[in-house]
Design a binder for these strands. Structure first.
Length: 576
RNA sequence: CGGGGUGUAGCGCAGCCUGGUAGCGCGUCUGCUUCGGGAGCAGAAGGUCGGGAGUUCGAAUCUCCCCACCCCGACCA
């Protein structure tokens, strides 16, 4: 490709509104442009990267035994009603009507469509297992699109669906897909972790998320320093404290705490550590009532865990001030478990506290030296909190660390949720009809591009992992328009690299060298070769890898061989 | 949806408080010079000041309504 003929439009300044590094660099390097909130056009350089990511995903899917197919993005409502998800999926499902007023949606995922296809095509256990995948645009009407293509409303996903007669077979395909996902991340040169995860609106019994580690990640993941245990913080169980609850010490006491509402204010006012303060959160109950959740002041409520408790409404919602007053007889900030006429769940750690501080259920007052059993009836114990760094690993080996991650992939063992709801049955060896058991496996292709940048950049721009760079080699001729010598050197080199199958770009634009250097670095091309009269006098070029601090001399007559070797090595380095 | 913020030339911004009909930098176009790290000089094009209504002799500026976009929270690849 000759840059003079290529649509490359880089920006010196960062467009307003871009917050995270990948979004800034994707705009500056001219990979994408925003159309509307959460909707992006991909420009030619961006598409080059996208296609390379897709190619790697395809290769690994084929290696894992999956077969590519393609399903419609527009889906009839009837299928979603069959699976009960027309109502359950909520406003994230973009609904529309055709000219006959029939209901449709834009596919946010394809379990319904693929299950419909499977029940028509798959009739015998002899056809199983199958694993179908597609790479296609998805649409989710996100509450808040964010961070450029990282959380877009329309995005490209690779989604795969497998069908099996029994769960053992599902488990084998799941393991192969787990391996395939790890290979994809590895080939992209990304530092990642596979973690146990919640299944959310997709459903099923077992799932893992693949997280690219980055401080800008929206998820928190917990992993053990003593084993390979790793889980999304949403999912990681907080073990009950090993030590038994201490015996009550001092007598119960009521303390006036005027206008002291928050844990921070309370710890300062009373000089008590947050771990000795219990906070009582009032949330909406299933029956329209309310439920109280008690956790330690230094702990964070885990909404996913809480909404699974009997009697608690899902999705979890905090009770408003009016509901709190009705239940506790005081405003939020002074609620406590003593004398509270609500069902109470207490977190294991809260339950292990003695002589603790809590709200008195009256304005401007708290109780100190409160003890379970003595002052408050023993509540029901539950795991209500997020794990914290230093907590023991749930598998009993080591302690947990917390890291931020970008969820680029998620795999599920769905089981028979969809096949039973939609009647996807096959005949088994005994001639009996059985619902198939299913797995589904998603990778955010567009998100992978952004995640790769989050892990690979410097002050000059993107530093692509070599397998997905838009071009492998950039040839940068100095004063090419005037210099016969430079042209005579660079044109054959360009042709030879093309002939050798190298993804090479020739920066033949009539612009000053500084512009070329800045653009090539912003774009993150892994290998750069400068061709100038200065070096050519000695038969030499200058080579510089994107990550290298300095250039090195490259004899002109060795250039093709050298670059081909570098490119192959760069890509091979990432192949597991 | 709740809270906060921003909309002025392709991009980044000033002007708004204190009304008088729009400016800076970058980019774009033309010419000359320059040509190994985002060039210099000279000239040029480009704006219903997000939209509508109102106040006023007069509105980018004041008032009201609407819209879009961004950020913080609940969702997910």
């Amino acid at each position: 490709m000759r840059l003079s003929e290529y649509s490359l439009n880089t920006l010196k300044e960062v467009p307003a509104g871009a917050e995270i590094i990948s979004h800034k660099l994707m705009l500056r390097a001219g990979l994408v442009r925003q159309l509307a909130s959460g909707l992006y056009s991909w420009l030619p350089v961006g598409v080059r990267v996208l296609r390379k990511v897709e190619a790697i995903v395809r290769e690994e899917m084929e290696r894992a035994g999956a077969q590519e197919m393609l399903m419609p993005m527009v889906q009839p409502a009837e299928l979603w009603r069959e699976s009960q998800r027309w109502d359950a999926f909520g406003p994230e499902l973009l609904r529309l009507k055709d000219r006959h007023q029939r209901d449709f949606c834009l596919g946010p995922t394809h379990e319904e469509v693929v299950t419909d296809l499977a029940r028509r095509e798959l009739k015998s256990y002899r056809q199983l297992p199958v694993n179908w995948y597609q790479i296609q645009s998805k649409f989710r009407d996100e509450i808040r699109p964010r961070f450029g293509v990282m959380r877009a409303r329309e995005f490209i996903m690779k989604d795969a669906y497998s069908f099996h007669l029994d769960d053992a077979c599902l488990g084998r395909t799941y393991a192969r897909m787990h391996e395939a996902y790890a290979r994809v991340c590895g080939r992209l040169g990304l530092a990642f972790r596979a973690v146990e995860a919640e299944t959310g609106s997709i459903g099923g019994n077992l799932s893992h998320e693949f997280h690219v580690l980055a401080d800008s990640g929206e998820d928190a993941i917990a992993f053990s320093d003593g084993s390979d245990y790793a889980a999304n913080v949403e999912k990681a169980p907080a073990l009950p404290p090993a030590e038994p609850r201490p015996a009550p010490g001092r007598p119960l006491e009521r303390v006036a705490t005027p206008a002291v509402r928050t844990i921070a204010q309370l710890t300062e006012f009373l000089g008590v550590p947050a771990a000795r303060v219990l906070k009582t959160l009032v949330v909406l109950g299933e029956d329209g009532g309310a439920v109280a959740l008690v956790i330690r002041g230094d702990h964070e409520l885990n909404a996913v865990k809480a909404e699974k408790l009997p009697g608690v409404a899902a999705p979890l919602r905090m009770a408003g001030p009016d509901a709190v007053s009705a239940a506790a007889g005081c405003e939020p900030g002074f609620v406590g478990p003593r004398g509270l006429g609500l069902k109470i769940y207490a977190d294991h750690a809260a339950l292990a506290a003695a002589d603790f501080v809590c709200g008195a259920n009256e304005v401007d007052a708290h109780l100190v030296s409160v003890n379970w059993g003595r002052d408050v009836p023993e509540p029901e114990a539950a795991d209500l909190r997020n794990v914290q760094p230093g907590d023991p690993s749930p598998d009993g080996k080591g302690r947990l660390n917390i890291a931020r991650g970008i969820e680029v992939g998620h795999i599920f063992q769905l089981g028979r949720k969809y096949s039973e709801a939609m009647g996807a049955l096959v005949l088994d060896a005994d001639g009996r009809e059985q619902p198939m058991t299913m797995g589904c496996y998603g990778i955010g292709v567009t998100r992978l591009v952004a995640a790769a940048i989050e892990q690979n950049f410097d002050e000059r721009g993107i530093v692509w992992p070599e397998p997905i760079a838009p071009f492998q080699v950039a040839l940068v001729p100095m004063n090419m328009q005037k210099s016969e010598v430079v042209r005579a050197a660079v044109e054959p080199l360009y042709a030879a690299l093309l002939a050798a199958g190298v993804d090479v770009v020739l920066d033949d634009r009539d612009v000053r060298p500084g512009v070329k250097f800045a653009d090539i670095e912003l774009l993150g091309i892994p290998h750069r070769v400068v061709v100038g009269e200065r070096g050519l006098a000695d038969g030499a070029l200058e080579y510089r890898a994107r990550r290298a601090a300095d250039s090195e001399v490259l004899p002109l007559d060795e250039a093709v061989e050298f670059l081909v070797a570098r490119v192959h090595a760069g890509i091979a380095r990432h192949s597991p």
